[in-house]
Structures are given as structure tokens and as C-alpha cells.
Design a protein around this nucleic acid. Sequence first.
DNA 1: ATAAAAGGGATCAAATTGGTCCTAAAGGTG
DNA 2: CACCTTTAGGACCAATTTGATCCCTTTTAT
Lengths: 136, 136
Amino acid sequence: MMELTRKGEYAIRGIIYLAQQPPGRVSLISEIAAAAEVPQTFLAKIFQSFAKLGLVTSSRGTGGGFVLARPASAITLREVVEAVEGPILPNRCLLGSACDRGGPCRVHAVWKQVQTEVVHILDGVTIDTLARNPES
Amino acid sequence: MMELTRKGEYAIRGIIYLAQQPPGRVSLISEIAAAAEVPQTFLAKIFQSFAKLGLVTSSRGTGGGFVLARPASAITLREVVEAVEGPILPNRCLLGSACDRGGPCRVHAVWKQVQTEVVHILDGVTIDTLARNPES
DNA sequence: ATAAAAGGGATCAAATTGGTCCTAAAGGTG
DNA sequence: CACCTTTAGGACCAATTTGATCCCTTTTAT
């Protein structure tokens, strides 16, 4: 239960690679895909999402590619994950106020707590931290 | 991300209904399905899982049906959810020790933390608590 | 102009989800 | 015993989601 999809994993691997490059260095999607060992066309879609959300800036044409739009220390794991997987949402009932007939369902408060806790953990991890992590 | 499936929701609704019955009272799957507003054949599969895991006891034939195998206060939300959705596992890499080439991946510790926290929350909620919850 | 990149849409196969159906097995009752 | 009731278990199926690929367009540097 609650599994991250491939897309989420690829997204993390890809942005970590970007964060490991010298600041300002432009990376091609082909380069990132090769380094992160991710299918290139799939990763391209992921980076499109990143660009739309302002996590990375992209430029086209010769010399184009991707750069982090902010310092890696200002990009959280939560942003990256939510960029491709959508919001952290243990249960649909957290969207509207009325999940059951009329009021909140019996488990509503529990899911809310799970959501809050997970969001808190992921907000506390920056891509910079992951990129510098000695492991792997 | 991290959404509970219908199966999980149905499982919770079904077992809450059982917990609301007088202790020892046998309920038919048809009765539970109607009360919980869940497709009966689908719920039957869910209760088969419950029975295998010892959350409920089942009996066949006339007068048969389902009863909680333990007091509702001794059944946790985690058990119910994991019975039908499998273990709380934010990332596959939490299964084996080596997720990346060789060692644990960079985000390993974060997923571990998410898992631990979610498990802790769900372990802290019993079906009894949910069944007595005034909401809904 | 031309080549090099990302942007975006259409498409597609595989896996998962959500569910049904049918037959078997087990347990009561006349 | 025969018969009815109820769960067990397997096969099956449609819809959705996931995990991609392909192709064409747009932008930009040379």
C-alpha cells in the first residue's frame, strides 16, 4: 500500500542528478536519462511537469536543456513527488468535506493525520540533502 | 499519491459494521454488504481474507456467517488495511536491503521514516474506536 | 537555412483495480 | 439421507491506471 510509482522514482533520480551538477550547468534530457538510468522519452514528460511547476527552467535549441530553477536546498522532496504523482492523499475523502452521507467518515481524522505526517516528512527533505547523501 | 483503494474502504466499512453488532452475533455477508453499501461478491472476497488472517471467524451453512475473532478493541486499522492492501510500503526499496546498485538508495531513509510513521498511526487506531466514533 | 533541443499530443501494451459468476465444500434441518 | 443455506475458491472480465513510445511542432543558436 501507498507505493511510489516508477514515475515518482524516475522524477527523484532525475532531479537529484541535476542537483549534482555545477550550479548553472545545463543538462540535456538525454544526459539525465542516461545517468539516472531512466527511459528518455518518459523522463522528458516528467521534466515537462517540473518546468511547468517552476522546479526547473528549460531552454530549447542548441545549447538548451534543463537547470534547477532554484537552489537544490530550496526544493523539497514533497514538491518533486507531488509534481508527478499528485497531492499526498491517503483517501479521496480528504478532498471534499463530506465523504460519507452528510458528515466526515469515521476514519477521516486518521487519514488527515497520515496526510499531515507524510507531508511533514517530505517537506523536511530537500533535494540538496539527497544529492549530497553519501549512500548509493 | 498513496491512495487507499475501494477494496480498503470496503474492508473498513465492513468490519466496522461487524464491530457494531452485539458481541457474538453472527452476520451474513449479504447483511454486511447491504449495511456497508458495498457489492456483496466483492465484500465476500474481502472477508475471506479477514478469515484467513484470523480477524474474523466464519462458519458455513444455515446459521453461518461472520463474527469478529477478537474484541474490536484488539483489531487495529493497520491490520484491516494490510489484510486487503498488503503491507504499508511507500517504496519497493524497503523490501530488500539493496535498492540501488549495491547499497540503499538516497531516499531510502526517508521512505523508511514514512513507513514507520504511517504504521504507527494506523496501529494506534482500533476498530472499536472507529465503530464508536459519533461521526457519520 | 539548418541543426539541436524541448513541448505536446496521440497512441499503445501491460498491470492493476474493481467486480462478477460458477462450482465446490461445509453445516444445519426435516 | 436429501435438501437448503451459507462461505470458499477459482476463473473470468471490463475499466482504469501505469509505463512507456512516436511523431510532429516550436524555439533557438549557429
